[in-house]
Write a protein that binds this DNA or RNA. Structure first.
Lengths: 134, 134
DNA sequence: CATAAAGGTTTCCTTCACTGGAAGGTCAAG
DNA sequence: CTTGACCTTCCAGTGAAGGAAACCTTTATG
């Protein structure tokens, strides 16, 4: 299978697939013409990668998950540990993003949004400690 | 004021301040020794930048907000537009992240996390369309 | 007065996970 | 033969800095 077909089947851009080969996540064969030749195995691995990436796992996480996936004697605890650590990162990110959202929503609401220059959003960003407390 | 003092007062790393100078967000003077010399004005601006960045505004958003901040004849509607667009980006990110979290939490819960190799997390990532639907 | 530490300067390289483009080889159809 | 789709490699760039190297200036100490 050529890279175009694999791209279509996995939904990953060809560029990304070449990149994944470059960093040794996948090792397609090569045809006589120099084209990459992918086996089912490779396509399957790329699908796995795409799904793990779409869950936000880093490339290095993915490398670990793939290794575990291909290790029949793995302990599910190892996989769970990676996933839980990732879950905690997601939760931390959600908390930060939620706090941002709250502050920003509050400011946007407080801003008249008309032709006048008075703007609580800018006032807040310009805050000096002597004019503090919201 | 030297960069170290500014760094301490704003909480921004010196590296970041140099970077902000490089991309023309701030223009400190230079002393005879070549050191950057920051005025109160610059410190104020850097504080503004730090607060805007901590709300997740992109550098380019910050550039726009700074320009509006320094424009006495601005319309608050312009600021509000930038902030609302950012709020929408945050909401989109929150939605994506929340979906990720839900999927991942579900998988982590389903995984025994013991010495055995069976792992629903890997099983899900390895999904082929014929074994689909969770 | 000499020296050492602390803090400043520059430039270049690295990160993360791609993405885009240029220049060129290969293949199937008309 | 030509066109166009597909493939190849290589180079550069993204955002927002972080790190290291090599050097200069100021300040504190013996």
């Amino acid at each position: 299978m050529n890279i175009g077909d694999v791209s279509q089947r996995t939904g990953l851009p060809a560029k990304t697939i070449r990149y994944y080969e470059e960093i040794d996540l996948v090792r397609p064969l090569r045809g006589e013409n120099g084209y990459r030749r992918f086996r089912e195995h490779d396509v399957h691995k790329l699908g796995f990668l795409g799904r793990a990436r779409s869950l936000g796992f880093s490339i290095e996480d993915c490398r670990g998950l793939l290794a575990l996936y291909e290790d029949d004697s793995r302990a599910s605890a190892d996989v769970r540990r990676i996933a839980k650590a990732h879950l905690e990162r997601i939760d931390a990110k959600l908390a930060r993003l939620g706090a941002m959202r709250a502050t920003l929503a509050h400011l946007v609401e407080a801003c008249a949004g008309d032709h006048r220059p008075d703007c609580p959003i800018l006032a807040d960003l310009a805050l000096e400690e002597d004019s503090a407390d919201i």
